[in-house]
Amino acid sequence: MNSLKIVAAPLRVAVLAPLLLGAASAYAARPMITDDARVVDPKACQVESWARRNQDGTNEFWAQPACNFTGNLELTLGGAITRESGGATHASAQVLQGKTLFKPLETNGWGAGLVLGTVRDPRASAGAGRDWYGFVPMSFSFAGDRFVLHTNLGWQRDQGTRRSHVMWGVGSETRLTDRSFAVMETFGAADGRPHYQVGVRYWLVPERVQVDTTYGNRFGGGGDRWISVGLRLLSPAFLP
């Protein structure tokens, strides 16, 4: 909300980016911010990476590896490097997140889970504080997974402002072909205008290698426009 983006305006949208998800026919993995009721396959891992160009000229480069060691606990540890419009480059985010399922998403059914995480901006100018968040992802499958709806509702503690607020997201995935999907979503917090994002994802290698691209902005403008290009890699089960 993501992940998802929630540290400084451009960074907040990225942090809620869904950091996880498994290798099945439909899930809210990259490039969606709204998370879903799936985890990476048991004993397997994935890496989600993407580059994001913001309206202010900054570029973000993200990498978020995630593994499922136990079968129902997905752990993600990742971060970002930001290149300012003036050329300076620095680490700008460190993310740690855990996700478990109460009910896995099934075809033509529904699922629900729990996500808890923290994100830290290590820059001295940001005060090196941590934001904490937790939310419940729910997913609903229709027409044999050809259309999947995801909803998120939760809480976030912003250490910079010492404020807590509601965070939410609503997103959808529509199968276009056997390998391609259209994604649309809106997400935000209770104290500001929501964002939206639209894009497509495509399996280069089914259930193993996926690419995507998106366009996003804040409703009503406000200088938060961005574009992103991503790559997602999923492994078979290999962990002990």
Score class of each variant (00 low, 15 high):
6 I>R: 10
8 A>E: 13
9 A>P: 15
9 A>R: 11
15 V>L: 06
15 V>P: 00
15 V>R: 00
15 V>Q: 08
21 L>N: 15
23 A>N: 10
24 A>E: 12
26 A>Y: 03
27 Y>T: 10
28 A>S: 15
30 R>P: 05
30 R>Y: 15
31 P>R: 01
31 P>A: 04
35 D>I: 09
35 D>G: 10
36 D>E: 10
40 V>G: 04
41 D>F: 08
42 P>F: 11
43 K>L: 12
44 A>R: 02
44 A>H: 05
44 A>S: 15
44 A>N: 12
45 C>D: 06
50 W>R: 10
55 Q>S: 14
55 Q>I: 04
55 Q>G: 11
56 D>Y: 07
56 D>C: 14
57 G>A: 07
57 G>M: 12
58 T>R: 03
59 N>M: 15
60 E>R: 09
61 F>C: 02
63 A>L: 14
64 Q>G: 00
65 P>W: 09
65 P>L: 04
66 A>Q: 07
66 A>E: 09
67 C>W: 00
69 F>T: 11
69 F>K: 00
70 T>V: 06
71 G>K: 07
71 G>T: 13
72 N>R: 05
72 N>P: 02
74 E>R: 03
74 E>C: 07
75 L>K: 03
75 L>F: 04
77 L>I: 13
77 L>K: 04
79 G>M: 04
81 I>C: 01
81 I>S: 08
82 T>W: 00
83 R>Q: 15
84 E>K: 08
84 E>R: 15
85 S>F: 09
89 T>N: 03
90 H>V: 00
92 S>G: 11
92 S>Y: 08
93 A>N: 06
94 Q>V: 09
95 V>I: 14
95 V>W: 03
95 V>Y: 03
96 L>A: 15
97 Q>T: 05
97 Q>H: 00
98 G>E: 05
98 G>L: 09
100 T>L: 15
100 T>F: 08
102 F>Q: 01
103 K>Q: 10
104 P>V: 09
105 L>W: 10
105 L>Y: 04
107 T>E: 13
108 N>H: 10
112 A>G: 08
112 A>V: 15
118 T>Y: 00
118 T>I: 01
119 V>M: 07
